[in-house]
C-alpha cells in the first residue's frame, strides 16, 4: 500500500439495516491484518459495532454536558430561569425550581441571566466512552444514557477523542448513525470521504438519494457499496451512474452472510468474495481519496 496522509472515512446509510455496521467492522478488521486502523462507533443511541469485535478494554470515561444546578439558599424564586428556557428544561413549582438535565441544551441562558447566581452550571453525565484494543485495531464507542436526547455533543466529543489519540492513523473509520438528520451531519462534516451502504431495492434507493443530498450539502466526496447485490433491481446502479457516484463494491446477496451476521461473526473470514470487495473499497480509498481534512 502506498503511504499517504491519514484518511478519515465515514460509513453511512440513509436507513438502518442496510449493513453499515457489518461493513464498518469487517473493513476495520480486514485493514488491521496489515496496518493500524481506528474504528469509531458514532451510532451513540445504539452502538452495535462492539458486538462484532473482541478486544481488551483499555480506557473508559464518562461523557458530560453542562447543566444548571439549583442552589436553593441563593434563589429568590423570581422565575426568570424558567421563562428563558426554550426547551422546558426548568419548571417552577411554587417555591421550588426543578431542572430536567436530559432536556437541557447547555445554552447557559438560565445560569447567566439569574441575578443571584442560584443556577451554577455543573457537569452531568450523559453516557460513557470506551476504548478497546486488539492488535492493530483500535475501537472506540460512546453510548448515550437512556433518556438523553442530544446525540450531537457526544458524537463531537467522541470524534475529538479518537482523532486526538490517533492523529497519525492511516485509517480512521466512523460508523455513522442512520438517517440524514443532525447526528449524521455531525459525523460527515469533517471527514475526507463517505462510504454509503445501500441495498438495490426501492427503499434502499430512496434512502440513498436522501443521504446523497445531505452529503452534497457539505460538498463531501462519496462512494457507494451495494449490499445484498442480486436481489431487487438495477435502479441503484443507474442512479449512481446518472449522479456520477462511484460504486466501490458489490456484495452478493447470500443467506450465509445473513446467518454469519446474525451470530455476530466477521463475514470476510469465511466468504472470500467479501474479502475481494473489501480490498476493492480499500484500493479505491487509497488511490482516489485526498486525506488530511481537519
Amino acid at each position: 500500500m502506498t503511504s499517504q496522509k491519514p484518511l478519515k472515512i465515514a460509513i453511512a446509510s440513509g436507513k438502518g439495516g442496510t449493513g453499515k455496521t457489518t461493513l464498518s467492522t469487517n473493513l476495520a478488521a480486514f485493514i488491521a491484518e496489515q496496518q493500524e486502523v481506528v474504528l469509531v462507533d458514532l451510532d451513540v443511541e445504539e452502538p452495535n459495532s462492539g458486538l462484532f469485535l473482541n478486544g481488551e478494554m483499555i480506557h473508559e470515561e464518562f461523557n458530560y454536558k453542562m447543566t444548571p444546578q439549583w442552589d436553593e439558599s441563593k434563589c429568590t424564586v423570581c422565575g426568570i430561569c424558567r421563562k428563558v428556557c426554550n426547551f422546558h428544561a426548568i419548571i417552577q413549582l411554587g417555591p421550588s425550581i426543578l431542572v430536567f438535565p436530559e432536556l437541557c441544551h447547555s445554552c447557559y441562558a438560565c445560569s447567566e441571566l439569574c441575578t443571584v447566581d442560584a443556577l451554577p452550571m455543573v457537569p452531568k453525565k450523559t453516557g460513557i466512552l470506551k476504548e478497546f484494543s486488539s492488535g492493530n485495531l483500535h475501537f472506540i464507542e460512546s453510548r448515550l444514557d437512556i433518556g438523553e436526547e442530544q446525540a450531537v455533543p457526544t458524537i463531537a466529543k467522541t470524534k475529538k477523542y479518537a482523532i486526538g489519540k490517533f492523529p497519525d492513523a492511516q485509517f480512521t473509520l466512523f460508523d455513522s448513525p442512520p438517517g440524514t438528520s443532525c447526528p449524521m451531519m455531525e459525523v460527515i462534516k469533517d471527514v475526507d470521504f463517505v462510504i454509503l451502504v445501500t441495498e438495490p431495492t426501492p427503499f434502499g434507493l430512496h434512502d440513498l438519494s436522501l443521504a446523497v443530498e445531505t452529503i452534497r450539502a457539505y460538498k463531501k466526496p462519496c462512494g457507494v457499496v451495494i449490499n445484498r447485490y442480486g436481489i431487487g433491481n438495477n435502479d441503484v446502479i443507474e442512479y449512481c451512474q446518472n449522479e456520477n457516484i462511484p460504486i466501490l463494491a458489490k456484495i452478493a446477496n447470500s443467506r450465509e452472510i445473513a446467518e454469519l451476521y446474525s451470530s455476530g461473526k466477521l463475514i470476510y473470514r469465511t466468504i472470500p468474495e467479501v474479502k475481494v470487495a473489501l480490498n476493492e473499497i480499500l484500493d479505491y480509498c487509497l488511490n482516489n481519496v485526498e486525506g488530511g481534512n481537519k
Binding site: R82, F87, H88, A89, I91, L93, G94, F100, L103, E149
Partner: peptide, 15 residues
C-alpha cells in the same frame, strides 16, 4: 406544538 419538553411544560401548567 413544542418540539421537545412537552411533558415538563404541561406539568408546569397543571401545577
Amino acid at each position: 406544538n413544542e418540539a421537545h419538553g412537552a411533558g415538563t411544560a404541561t406539568s408546569q401548567r397543571v401545577f
